[in-house]
């Protein structure tokens, strides 16, 4: 029979195991999405203008605070609606699942940038 102290230790042990494995799982999924996003970023030639690290053109830092994911997707699909005449119009070109991973990757790039002073 486990005494009360052993029980506590066992519960803490289970909690830590579960917690670590969840964190590991989330990190693994997160990394996979970032890799998929990176692949989309390159496949759709975003890096041609924005640069491989996204720091050539535009400002991805704090993107999450400024725009919702839906807004970013709307922008990517038709930048002309926002007065951007330079970017390709991706509507019907990038499938929706790829758009989601792309947005995730933009947040990832933004998290590694410091805001630009214009």
């Amino acid at each position: 029979m486990l005494n009360i102290v052993d029980m506590k230790v066992f519960v803490v042990f289970l909690f830590l195991m579960f917690g670590f494995s969840s964190v590991a799982q989330v990190t693994k999924v997160d990394n996979r999405i970032v890799l998929e996003g990176k692949s989309a970023f390159e496949a759709y030639a975003c890096n041609n203008c924005h640069g491989n690290k996204g720091d050539n053109l535009g400002d991805f830092s704090g993107l999450k605070k400024r725009f919702s994911d839906e807004e970013i997707i709307r922008y990517i699909k038709n930048p002309r609606l926002y007065g951007n005449k330079l970017m390709p119009v991706y509507d019907g070109v990038i499938p929706s699942d790829k758009l989601n991973t792309l947005v995730h990757y933009l947040h990832h790039l933004g998290s590694e940038q410091t805001p630009k002073k214009l």
Binding site: Y44, A45, C46, N48, C49, K85, L86, M87, P88, V93
Partner: peptide
């Protein structure tokens, strides 16, 4: 995709 240096 037609990106830089091709202008739009």
């Amino acid at each position: 995709i037609l990106a830089y240096p091709m202008p739009s």
